[in-house]
Nucleic acid binder design. Structure first.
Lengths: 353, 353
DNA sequence: CCGGTGAACTGAAAGGTTTTCGGAAACGTA
DNA sequence: TACGTTTCCGAAAACCTTTCAGTTCACCGG
């Protein structure tokens, strides 16, 4: 027998290698096929300089032993792990998830794997995860913000490309992808204007969110463009349905003649619609309502179904992932990229018949 | 100078090692500290046989070079990657997420990293991801089902421990953690009975879901225990709010004297409550309503807030992760483990004053 | 017959870390 | 001085794969 037996290498177990204990290595494959390791490697990787019959033997051996090349050894040698880190501050939040999904999608297609880390909004934890990812030699990193607010950069001297999604980095040299909330809000208002609405109110979330402030800006832009004044002051509150109901009561009292409301979230919109109907206003006939987020459980299930702004978060995540690929290849695209939102028209703005 | 210069090793760049190009290796640390790599390794890993002053020098050198041990090399040697795979069929679904979060939580605490793979319900894709994970030499695997239905085992001859969460494996030798839907439904009905309700109806989702069938079983159990008959046949439909509304109309027509309804999801319950109120029934005074899932956006925001069954999915995920740890340590716990649900009492069943 | 050519294959190094074993120095004891 | 013990450190192997630089062999033209 020409089989070389190394210490700790039990020949008797050879037949069970893929079932128990040690996994098959390329060494085992080479031995079984009766060739050297180098030849086995070339055969398995489809390279030249291997006779067809030899390649066949090697492939058969690999099949029999259920050989899977060890990605660790491969990565150690090549310096590429084909793995990226996904650092989220709050994957419990509704917004992180679609971004994550889109990214996972883009990576999955490219044979990349995703290491998921959730920092739970804790900077210490984030630092900890960052170290762990670096130690695992990830090829790149996506940082998903917990809101659209700007967040501290993490890329300084990191040695791997980083792309920020949903919330931008505070370093303009970094690559960031965020939803264009200004544009989204403007789009919503333009839609209301096009429907002939003229007394448009705005109910939104807390003013310490960049999202609210951006949307206010968008509303102002679109109203100015149409030569209109906003009906009453912007009402700042929470993102909740409860606030939507409360705001509706206030608004219908203070500004009884409004004919449209732009709400900062679908939850607010749902609450608003509910109360408006209870107060005898028909939606959309008397008051048209637009939400934000296109959170489908809410936006499609309320009656009437909500017209709303969709931030295309999954697309945003996918785009971020693609640009991370580019950055890994040395083609970085620095700056804050604003991804367009999309108006989803349903019944709550009606066709105004 | 006693520094050995290897080919491709540019001494001039030494000061920039942690900023650009090559990362610092233990070799660099050892050189800087003026010791051998063996000593450096021992110093860094807190082992014996290193003088305190030497250890200090090594630690300082590591700090200066921002040294991070290469997890690939370490894993290659030890055969342990401290990484687990999380294979989900449908992370878009609401149920995968909490499980994932719980697992990530448990792993994060134990210094494990999580490789996330979403098979999108496609068996081919699943196989593909499985291979990728195996090739990366994960220490273990959690498979998250897309429903509570039993799913094909994936553990045959895999060589790494696997734990199934949410949906059980069809191999009883595998380790599975699923919510106890029978118990959850029974708990809900017992609560209604305790409140003095006697004419209890049941509206649930499609009958091809194990979840629906289990809950029917729980309802039957609890009713039998209380010596009651169910009010009308179980109504099978969809999990949606729309179906809840529709079911309410049917039920209030066919069984106008019901005083309680157990719904298979919070969405169904929300729809039911809405229509019941429109039809002039007071909730909970005339009809008590219980949902399922404790999906908080729905259950806390509807009026009245929904009493509902919480499957404790995050705990389930965490538990699954902990048992995966155990399995990795060779202490497997085969079988299907049913995790208790929890009744969250809110206003829709009132205190029946 | 001989140098040359090309195909097919092999040996060895490299990648970064941990661990084992042995060596060296310092010190105490007979 | 000879020897044993303790303390600290270094050389080298091992993990698995890829790749570079050969090496062998058959064959061809001269």
């Amino acid at each position: 027998m020409g089989v070389m037996v190394r210490p700790g290498y039990r020949l008797t177990e050879k037949g069970f290698e893929n079932m128990a204990g040690r996994r098959a290595t390329i060494n085992d494959v080479a031995s079984l096929a009766g060739v050297s390791i180098a030849t086995a490697s070339k055969a398995l990787n489809g390279r030249q300089d291997v006779r067809a019959s030899t390649r066949q033997r090697v492939l058969a051996a690999a099949e029999e032993l259920a050989f899977q090349p060890n990605a660790l050894a491969r990565g150690l040698l090549s310096g590429q792990t084909r793995t990226v880190g996904l650092l989220t501050s709050d994957s419990a939040g509704r917004f992180g998830i679609p971004v994550l999904l889109g990214a996972e999608d883009a990576f999955g297609a490219g044979e990349m794997a995703v290491l998921l880390c959730d920092a739970r909004g804790d900077a210490i934890r984030e630092q900890h995860h960052l170290r762990a990812l670096l130690s695992r030699r990830v090829d790149g990193l996506i940082v998903v913000g917990e809101s659209t607010d700007v967040r501290p950069s993490v890329s300084r001297n990191l040695g791997v490309p980083v792309v920020y999604a949903y919330g931008a980095s505070d370093d303009p040299e970094d690559v960031s992808f965020v939803p264009d909330d200004v544009g989204g809000a403007a789009m919503a208002v333009q839609h209301l204007v096009a429907l002939g609405r003229r007394r448009i109110a705005h109910v939104t979330g807390p003013d310490h969110y960049k999202a609210s402030r951006d949307r206010v800006e968008g509303v102002e832009l679109a109203l100015a463009e149409a030569g209109l004044e906003q009906a009453g002051e912007t009402l700042w509150g929470a993102w909740s349905q409860r606030w939507g109901r409360h705001a509706a009561e206030m608004l219908l009292m203070a500004q009884p003649d409004i004919d449209a409301v732009f709400c900062g979230s679908d939850q607010i919109a749902a609450g608003f619609v509910e109360t408006a109907r209870e107060r005898g206003r028909r939606v959309p006939d008397d008051i048209a309502v637009i939400g934000y987020d296109n959170w489908e459980v809410l936006s499609t299930e309320t009656r009437p179904a909500l017209t709303t702004v969709d931030m295309n978060l999954e697309l945003l995540g996918r785009t971020a992932a693609q640009h991370l690929f580019a950055a890994i290849d040395g083609k970085a695209t620095p700056g804050v990229h604003r991804m367009p939102c999309q108006l989803v028209i349903r019944d709550s703005t009606g066709s105004s018949t």
